[in-house]
Design a protein around this nucleic acid. Structure first.
Lengths: 199, 199
DNA sequence: GCAAAAGTGTTAATTCTACACCCATGG
DNA sequence: CCATGGGTGTAGAATTAACACTTTTGC
């Protein structure tokens, strides 16, 4: 007889759309799948991502959140960051506002914890690269931070802080978003997890 | 046929003995046990603690570290903090210096990560209460911090910082450790996880 | 010339760091 | 009176927070 618990993988998938942090909840629950022997957990998580979001996995940031155990089940939860422009239009209704989640959702506390971890992590790493295209302007970057933190930030202090972290590089190219002055485009020096340097 | 992976719990048990951070490695590996259905993971972890350290579990700080997966196994690792004065004398040889671990240990990288998590956590919580008796003097508290961080701290700055965090309360009682001036005894306001207040 | 977003500097408050001497006690 | 660890303050540096106006562009 099998004395093991039922093992599953769940995913909290984040994106930022029009200044709002969004979470992927098809059928109002986090995507999940059973764990199969012989396959590494992160491979299973990637397959689950591709199967539910319907796009190939690339270099989005991706890490284990926590392992929850209830009754006879164990759920190993990962969270993943996705840039909004890759989301298939037909799934757009499955993305829920992270700041307005109903407390009655099955995965409410898991999602809340994932948001908190994300809020911590953007303070001392470059992971927001996963929400942004290769090049972007400061207002786009700031919008991502504000969406995740759920509050507005001072434009001047934000720019100074970001530049001092030494994780961005200017591209020299300019971009216009609206009917206004063009903005300088930046990119991340690294598009993989980098911890902010402490002097 | 069973398609699940083999599930186990592991424990990284910390203590501080004579100014050194120590890890419990009987047989040079982390204590571990198979997971049994119907029992919550934290209960299993407590039983494993009691069975290997041979003392009852109390209010020591205890949290999940990470879930590692290799081959056909999944190990859910917890870490736990224990005050040195509860350690049975006969197990004393099983406690290894955290700053001098052999890189060839089976669980080396797991332990390294646990130390890092512990180092982070003492900066913004009161968890070191788990290493200390109910009342203690400042030099004891500082010794614990220094052991965990692996470096010396300035006595004056340390005291100022700790008092400003508002997690300690003076007891009014004094204590002598050596042939010197008595020291004031303090205790933690809370002996459970408390996050440091941000103003 | 107007609307819209980009870009920029200073000041005050706070926090952090480095650092050295006197105090209370027991023997 | 000596050895031992307890206890204390200050000044400079660095970091953070608050705050408003000018620039560039398209229309």
């Amino acid at each position: 007889m099998n004395t093991d618990k039922k093992l599953q993988i769940k995913l909290v998938i984040f994106t930022v759309i029009r200044g709002k942090l969004k979470i992927f909840l098809p059928e109002k629950v986090l995507p999940s799948t059973a764990i199969v022997k012989e396959k590494p957990l992160d491979k299973i998580a990637r397959s689950l991502f591709e199967a539910t979001v319907c796009i190939p996995f690339k270099d989005y940031y991706f890490e284990q959140l926590y392992t929850f155990s209830q009754h006879k089940e164990v759920a190993i939860v990962y969270y993943l960051l996705l840039p909004h422009y890759l989301i298939p239009q037909k799934s757009i209704k499955a993305w829920y506002d992270g700041q307005k989640l109903s407390k009655t959702l099955t995965d409410f506390s898991t999602i809340k914890y994932a948001i908190q971890r994300l809020q911590w992590k953007i303070e001392y790493t470059n992971i927001v690269y996963s929400f942004l295209p290769k090049t972007f302007v400061f207002s786009q970057l700031q919008t991502v931070y504000e969406a995740i933190l759920g509050k507005g930030l001072d434009k001047r202090n934000f720019r100074k802080k970001m530049l001092s972290l030494n994780i961005l590089k200017p591209t020299g190219r300019m971009k216009r978003l609206g009917p206004s002055r063009p903005a300088e485009m930046f990119s991340f020096k690294m598009r993989r997890l980098t911890y902010v340097e402490i002097l």
